[in-house]
Design a protein around this nucleic acid. Structure first.
Length: 626
DNA sequence: GTAGGGTTAG
């Protein structure tokens, strides 16, 4: 079906889009293929001379030209002469524009088609909607929607789905619901779009409800749902769903692999990650850059730098994402120097860094105490690469200065910021105040933090620690009281370790594990040896208002200690122990794990909230700087 | 010739 759009006035929204061509559009857009302004005439001459009509492709070149020049009627003449179906030619052109770097050219061409009363069909709309989707142009979408209704295409399922999707990506929530609810027919695509919508709204439970109710599910449905869980911070659910998908004998594709690998990265689930890696190799997914980048990230987040590096090395093509991930990976694994060297190598290869690359670099500097170098990178990002520092970069800089003990300077830096500092920025200062014992500035930081992020328990805990270390017990008690009043509870420390694919979780103070007794006995034995090597429990990390002996008892049941001891008991001598922790490792556990690695002669890798600690022969890869 | 997932930071 096709309809002439003669009678339709071109709405203003679309007219504003139909700006005149600029050198940039000509350079960036599809019109790079536009060789000379004489092309039109050449094609015209060809038709007349040889009597061979040009192909649709050639003609869509003509159309490309006309979209931006005044020779629209002339182009129509040529298309008519060619004997090709005019709508097909324009559609081909719209499709190219929609796929190009400047999809707004498609919108502009569409306006011209309307102005000149060209016959439109469903394909015309689908292409222009694709362009609007790419542009996140919900308003333009509404206008096209109006056209679709007026011209009688409203029952076309392709167009319905395209419209719903456009409303999803452009955030027109009300329109999404309205349109979806009154759709006469829905297919698996419609449902998949709704999953994306609900996930985007953060409503992953409802998305899963919908997923369960769907009349039909394909690989994309499963993948969208798995990815939805990952995006909503539920990697465990993502992995569980993936297992169900395998049970249904559905074959994962590249996107599924990316989703599951992301979940593995979040969980630190190395075993499953390795399996997916093998599957990806078998399936020939290695050529897919996103698969490789996610794989690389998975190994990094699981603390397997060597495996990550070999994925990186083997990649046929690397993007800035690969480089940035590798730089950050080295940095969080205590290989800051290597991170900086890799960056130099990248620059040498003339690869342009982006904002994320600099986050990794600044992080590396911060964790090595390289203040000068960090300042240089910060200055260089805008000066040499035109990257405007974002709030994350400011956060890194405050962290760098604060860790190095330059607290006043860090504070000045915050005050001079051009954007409003957020919780991360003030939190970095607070962290530095703890290490360098500056109560006064800590109080300044907390003042802002209580405004910005009053429900974040971490800040209260740090402040209370700072007071406790300064022996200001009343103030420490006051902070705890404040927490109670605000209903803020300290997140319990929790560590997990995976053995033979089973994840064992330990929460601080937890003695519910079936092996609790053996864990206690082993710990006692280790403790004797640790004491001989100079270990003294550091009870300042315990915030509770309890007797000293109670504090020690508490300290000995910190989750990372429990998980590590459990690992020692249940694995063969020499096997590395890998533990994931939800919070940062405490000072006491850090000291204890260094000694334990020496006593039992094992590598112990702990991933905390921020980075990796690799304990080996009595030292930690973080060089006690974290 | 038309519609629906994906990578580094957080």
């Amino acid at each position: 079906m096709s309809v002439y759009a003669h009678s339709l006035p071109v709405p203003e929204t679309l007219q504003t889009n139909s700006r005149n061509p600029t050198p940039e559009t000509l350079e960036n857009g599809l019109l790079r293929t536009f060789k000379s302004p004489f092309e039109l005439k050449q094609i015209h001459a060809q038709i007349i001379k040889t009597n061979t009509p040009p192909s649709v492709l050639q003609l869509s070149h003509v159309a490309s030209i006309c979209a931006l020049t005044s020779s629209f009627p002339y182009a129509r003449t040529i298309i008519h002469l060619s004997g090709k179906h005019e709508t097909a030619v324009w559609n081909s052109c719209l499709k190219d524009f929609a796929q190009s770097e400047s999809p707004d050219d498609a919108v502009r061409l569409f306006s011209r088609l309307c102005e000149h009363g060209i016959c439109l069909d469903a394909f015309t709309f689908s292409f222009v909607l694709k362009a609007c989707t790419k542009l996140l142009d919900g308003l333009g979408g509404r206008v096209i929607h109006g056209f679709i209704e007026k011209l009688g295409f409203q029952s076309n399922l392709y167009l319905q789905n395209s419209l719903v999707h456009l409303y999803v990506v452009s955030g027109e929530i009300d329109s999404v619901r309205q349109l979806f609810d009154k759709m006469p027919d829905r297919d698996v695509v419609s449902w998949n779009i709704m999953i994306k919508h609900l996930v985007k709204m953060g409503n992953v439970d409802e998305a899963y409800n919908l997923f369960s109710m769907m009349p039909e599910r394909n690989v994309r449905s499963w993948t969208s749902m798995i990815m939805g869980f990952v995006q909503c911070g539920k990697p465990k659910e993502a992995v569980d769903l993936f297992t169900k998908m395998e049970e249904e004998k559905l074959c994962p594709n590249e996107v599924t692999v990316v989703a599951v690998l992301s979940a593995c990265a979040d969980l630190g689930a190395l075993d499953l990650g390795k399996k997916i890696h093998e599957f990806a190799n078998r399936s020939g997914f290695k050529r897919n850059i996103r698969v490789c980048n996610t794989l690389l990230d998975m190994y990094i987040k699981c603390g397997c730098l060597v495996a990550a590096y070999s994925v990186f090395e083997e990649m046929e093509q690397k993007t800035i994402v690969s480089w940035s991930a590798m730089i950050q990976g080295l940095a969080i694994n205590g290989k800051g120097e290597e991170a900086l060297i890799l960056f130099s190598k990248m620059i040498h290869l003339q690869i342009k860094p982006n904002g994320v690359t600099f986050i990794g670099l600044l992080y590396a500097c911060s964790h090595m105490g390289l203040v000068h170098k960090g300042r240089q990178y910060f200055a260089s990002m805008s000066r040499d690469y035109g990257i405007v520092p974002q709030i994350e970069h400011y956060g890194c800089m405050v962290d760098l200065l604060s860790r190095a003990g330059l607290l006043k300077e860090a504070h000045e830096f915050i005050k001079s910021m051009h954007i409003k500092p957020n919780g991360v920025v003030w939190g970095a200062l607070l962290g530095g105040c703890r290490v360098h014992k500056n109560v006064e500035l800590a109080e300044e930081a907390i003042k802002h933090l209580l405004e910005l992020d009053p429900l974040n328990d971490g800040y209260y805990v740090v402040l209370s620690n700072i007071y406790a270390e300064a022996k200001r017990w009343e103030d420490a008690a006051r902070v705890r009281k404040l927490m109670r009043e605000k209903g803020v509870k300290k997140t319990p420390g929790s560590s997990s370790i995976s053995l033979d694919g089973v994840v064992h979780e330990f929460v601080a103070g937890d003695d519910s594990h079936p092996q609790t007794e053996v864990i206690q006995q082993t710990w006692e034995k280790l403790l004797e040896e640790m004491r001989l090597r100079g270990y003294v429990p550091n009870t300042s990390v315990v915030l509770l208002d309890i007797e000293e002996s109670e504090k020690v008892r508490f300290l000995y049941r910190h989750s990372e200690k429990l998980a590590v001891v459990f690992g020692l008991i249940n694995t063969a001598n020499g096997t590395p122990i890998r533990v994931m922790k939800n919070l940062r490792v405490c000072e006491d556990c850090h000291a204890a794990l260094k000694l334990i690695s020496e006593i039992v002669d094992r590598k112990i890798v702990v991933r905390d909230r921020n980075r990796f600690h690799c304990f080996e022969n009595g030292v930690c890869s973080c060089k006690d700087f974290w």
